[in-house]
Amino acid sequence: MPGSGVWLYAVSSRLVSEAGLAGTTGVDAERLRTVERDGLVAVVGSVDLDEFGEAPLRRKLDHLETLEAIARAHHAVVDAAARLAPVVPIRLATVYRGDDGIADLLAQRHDELTTALERISGRFEWGVKAYAAPASPAEPDAEATSDAGPGTAYLLRRRTQLETLDRARQTAVDSAEHVHARLSEIAVASRRHAPQDAQLTGTPEWMVLNGAYLVDVTRADEFAHAVDSLKAAQPTVRLELTGPWPPYSFTAGEPAEADDAAQEAEART
């Protein structure tokens, strides 16, 4: 039966005060609160299951604009909590029937969550994307097609165009590999996510790197400076730095997997 559910946002090993979250509301514009168990603290909010139960939530997430709004609100809570204490971000749309379910999760996954929190303490995630402009298709040498028939000339043009595009893409990929390797030297850990489709990025450029980097707070300026230096050193790609984020990409396991939707929605605002 519909009623009230509990939306789970993040988990910490330190007390995240409700007062510290007072200026932030959740996905249902609800007031945030905490649930504690065995030294872990979950940041949660009560939501209306008529709107955020399994079936209605699935319908909401099928619409891009609604998904973005929910993801943005979810991320805002995670981000606010992360500024108070190290947190494991919880995947979008994790809803329990009541606080007992949250407490059981904290008990059952205590060791996993504690290990994740120890790993990310004093660190934030930074994102770096590399884009390359598609090359203009080249034309074959006029002399090579002067004696060719229409069909042969077309095939020569097509082959030359494809070769030009392949070379341009490979050059961009090589630049992206260099960027990723350099930034990984500074980061504690790094991950390469799948490149995003142009429909999501809003640009016709090729995305050749979608990297995530876990960086010590004390090396954040060094990391940003390295990105700036790479922008000048790798002119074949355009670099985009985002962050700092809560460590979405570096908290493994189902309740702590990366939530790209939250980051992407926030990044577009």
Rank of each mutant, 00 (worst) to 15 (best):
A181G: 13
T145R: 15
R169M: 11
D174E: 14
A176W: 00
S190D: 04
A176H: 02
L156N: 05
V208T: 01
P134T: 08
L183A: 08
R123I: 02
T145M: 12
V173R: 06
A194G: 06
Q199D: 13
I186P: 07
D141N: 12
A135K: 07
V188M: 11
H180L: 10
A212G: 15
R167A: 12
Y131N: 07
F124I: 12
P134M: 08
A132P: 05
T160P: 07
Q161L: 00
A198W: 04
V179M: 01
H193N: 13
S146D: 15
R119H: 03
I120K: 00
T203F: 07
R182K: 11
T201G: 10
I120E: 01
R191V: 15
L209V: 01
P150V: 15
P134Y: 03
G127F: 01
A181Q: 10
H178Q: 13
A138F: 05
W126N: 09
L162K: 02
R169E: 06
A181V: 10
A132S: 10
R182Y: 04
V208A: 04
P150Y: 07
T145H: 11
D147L: 14
F124Q: 14
A172R: 06
Q196N: 07
A148Q: 04
T152E: 09
A135V: 13
A189N: 03
S190A: 12
A138Y: 01
T201E: 09
S175I: 11
P140T: 01
V179I: 02
H193A: 12
L156K: 09
A153W: 01
D141G: 14
D141Q: 08
R158K: 09
P134C: 07
A144S: 13
W126Q: 08
G202S: 11
S136R: 15
A153N: 01
R191W: 02
V208E: 07
Y154C: 02
T160V: 12
H193K: 13
H178Y: 08
T164I: 04
R191P: 03
K129T: 12
E185N: 12
L209E: 00
Y154S: 05
R159K: 14
T152F: 06
V188E: 08
T160C: 11
K129D: 11
R119W: 00
S136H: 12
